[in-house]
Design a protein around this nucleic acid. Structure first.
Length: 436
DNA sequence: AAGCAGAGGTAAGGTCTC
DNA sequence: CCAAGAGACCTTACCTCT
């Protein structure tokens, strides 16, 4: 009678009844300056120099790699350092994805605006992100790990969790022996280094992997909590971001130890039942979440920041073109990965950085570009368009694998709650005066 | 007829992560 | 004048059905 839940193929690391007592040993592995290191493999002449990766792909390409004849055909490793574009030459929007360690010396780092970084280190070399290349290396290093340890959880392109508990050698020296083996294998197959932390759970492993960077290993045991974890700032906890960190600071709590000293009920009073209890748990190093090897995507989206802020009326044509393109790209992503969706939405970022989102669920699943364009277009009519826009995004959620879609679409429950289309929404192509 | 509780859903906003 | 893009998850409000 109810909506069939999305199949969660969650394989956990639950061990098959160990004969002898084993310690739970979880590793967190983090590739060192991943995006930048991948680029340094093709431009070895840049080793040791401040290099940043990021900015708009097209913008950097305009600066980049014009050979003497303007073809850009020169063999990469022979391009003289002087010919590479510099941060001071970069114009426009964008942020830094990764900086090499020499660049970090200047205070340049991930997520920093390009213009600000240019002030800190104008001579830094700037290269575009090559996502295809990064993904290739990502697959390679993960495959290397899986040859050694089968229980691995993906955490983005440059990061994984690995359950060492039942891997041969995973217990030796608290995991150090296996960690070394994995580092060696990854280096042999990619030429890249990584840092690994091994601890009783994911929470502590994640923090441990930062202790000894780059190319380091750090082993943490339960009894190290007080000495190695409690002195750290609360921001080191995965999940305590700028907002919670700021609020804790206002309450006089800077370190994880100080957090652990708080009464759980007091934390719940300030942060809510779920977050408060969670904060208390993590401050005491407690985390029994499993290493999950499979998971299903929840949403797929595409968004873009414009070169300049656009006005809904004056720049209508351009916005319309961008909007259609985003919808078609979301459709393409769904199709390529074999999914359909029944909730579609938009995201706007205004010139003052305020964000507005709108969603709309329908009773059928689709991955069709024009249909998505129509549904997302209806969302657009429900959002204020008086301010200038800097970003537009399109999102699909309520996903189902295309081969598992219930023939009738979702049953009563879902269809019932959905908002009834209002008369103006009918939107046969070409009839409604669509905003964009 | 009104009221309540719980389940489950949609919608909007927010936080956090790499 | 600046601050990307993609995705997961949480909270809150509100709705409907049982």
């Amino acid at each position: 009678m109810t909506v069939p839940p999305l199949e969660k193929t969650a394989e956990t690391s639950a061990a098959p009844a160990p004969q002898e007592s084993r310690l739970r040993r979880i590793a967190h592995l983090d590739m060192d300056a991943f995006f930048a290191s991948v680029e340094l493999l093709r431009y070895p002449q840049l080793k040791g120099l401040p290099v940043v990766i990021g900015g708009g792909r097209r913008k950097v390409d305009e600066l980049l790699l014009q050979g003497p004849d303007g073809t850009g055909e020169r063999e990469r490793r022979f391009i003289p350092v002087e010919d590479f574009p510099r941060l001071k030459d970069y114009v426009g929007r964008g942020v830094i994805t990764t900086a090499t360690y020499p660049a970090r010396q200047f205070g340049v780092g991930s997520a920093m605006g390009m213009m600000k970084a240019a002030k800190l280190c104008p001579e830094a070399i700037v290269l575009p992100v090559d996502f295809d290349e990064v993904r290739r290396y990502s697959r390679t290093f993960k495959a290397a790990i899986l040859e050694i340890a089968p229980v691995m959880q993906d955490r983005g392109v440059d990061e994984v969790y690995i359950d060492f508990t039942d891997v041969p050698g995973g217990q030796r020296e608290g995991g150090r022996v296996l960690a070394r083996l994995i580092q060696k294998s990854i280096f042999e197959k990619t030429g890249l280094t990584c840092s690994i932390g091994v601890a009783p759970n994911r929470l502590l492993a994640k923090m441990a992997s930062e202790f000894n960077k780059p190319n380091g290993i750090s082993i943490v045991y339960e009894e190290d909590l007080q000495e190695k974890i409690w002195p750290l700032n609360v921001r080191k906890v995965n999940g305590i971001g700028p907002k919670a960190g700021e609020k804790l600071a206002r309450l006089g709590i800077e370190t994880i130890g100080q957090l652990a000293a708080q009464d759980e009920q007091w934390l719940i009073g300030h942060f809510g039942k779920s977050t408060g209890a969670w904060m208390h748990r993590v401050a005491w190093g407690r985390d029994d979440s499993p290493v999950v090897t499979e998971s299903e995507p929840v949403s797929m989206s595409r968004e873009t920041t414009f070169d300049r802020d656009l006005h809904a009326v004056r720049d209508r044509a351009e916005l319309s073109r961008i909007f259609t393109d985003l919808c078609l790209r979301v459709a393409g992503d769904l199709q390529r990965k074999g999914y359909v969706a029944r909730t579609f939405g938009i995201k706007l970022r205004y010139d003052d950085f305020k964000i507005a989102t709108r969603d709309h669920s329908v009773a059928f699943y689709t991955a069709d570009g024009p249909t998505i364009r129509k549904l997302a277009g209806q969302c657009l009519k429900r959002v204020p368009l008086d301010k200038r826009l800097r970003l537009l995004g399109v999102r699909a959620s309520g996903l189902a694998r295309v081969e598992e879609v219930p023939a009738q679409g979702p049953q009563r429950g879902a269809a019932r709650g959905a908002r009834e289309p209002t008369p103006g929404d009918s939107a046969e192509p070409g009839t409604t005066a669509s905003l964009f």
